[in-house]
């Protein structure tokens, strides 16, 4: 599993619960080290172990943990660059949804060994969509739930999300757009670089 993904899990745990809490999780998962390097690759087993340890330590079901990580990814001040990169996808939430098809390719443009799940958006009406997530392992869909929730807030859109795992490596999220401009949302300045 790519270091960026592992590093995200670590960042989520230590940014929300503190560095000591993370060290305990790392120890529980028997990583043999304290810090993931974002630009290195790790055995997929390590990711599984660390997710399990983190879910246990936080007292959350794994799916909820993954969703929290997704939301963290687009809303925490330390991950501002992630939010900005996603905001490049579109000027409003619907355009953003449509840009998700390109997300894996966009990610590969920046980090060519980062393999993200294939995403496919289907439009069932102007306010109803479904997003199918296909990957070698299940779990990305839950992360995406968090990402979508966070980005809807970011755009100021009011949405209803419904998640279901449909089989090994395939997940589906139903998206219902209640109101595109429900709230102010956060600004997006093309020229401002994330610190």
């Amino acid at each position: 599993m790519h270091g960026l993904i592992n590093r995200t899990i670590q960042a989520f745990v230590s940014d929300t619960r503190g560095a000591d809490f993370w060290r305990d999780v790392a120890q529980q998962a028997q990583l043999g080290f304290d810090d993931f390097e974002a630009m290195l690759s790790y055995d997929a087993q390590l990711t599984e172990r660390v997710l399990q340890a983190a879910a246990e330590a936080l007292g959350l079901p794994q799916e909820a943990l993954l969703e929290d990580i997704g939301a963290y990814l687009v809303s925490h001040e330390k991950t501002e660059s992630m939010r900005r990169l996603l905001r490049f996808g579109g000027v409003d939430f619907v355009e953003f949804l449509h840009s998700l098809d390109d997300l894996p390719d966009r990610a590969r443009l920046a980090v060519d060994d980062l393999v993200l799940p294939q995403l496919e958006l289907e439009e069932h009406g102007s306010d109803r969509f479904s997003l199918t997530v296909r990957a070698k392992i299940t779990g990305f869909g839950a992360v995406l739930m968090g990402v979508l929730r966070g980005m809807a807030d970011d755009y100021g859109a009011l949405v209803l999300l419904d998640y279901m795992a449909r089989g090994p490596g395939e997940e589906r999220i139903d998206i219902q757009l209640i109101e595109a401009a429900f709230a102010e949302g956060r600004g997006f300045d093309l020229g401002a670089r994330a610190g």
Partner: peptide, 23 residues
């Protein structure tokens, strides 16, 4: 817009690499 996206994405990736190199 794609160029801006790439510049930011590459900068973020470079930053991660730079930190790794420093370590």
């Amino acid at each position: 817009i794609e160029m801006l996206y790439l510049v930011e994405a590459k900068s973020a990736a470079m930053e991660a690499s730079r930190k790794l190199n420093l370590r």
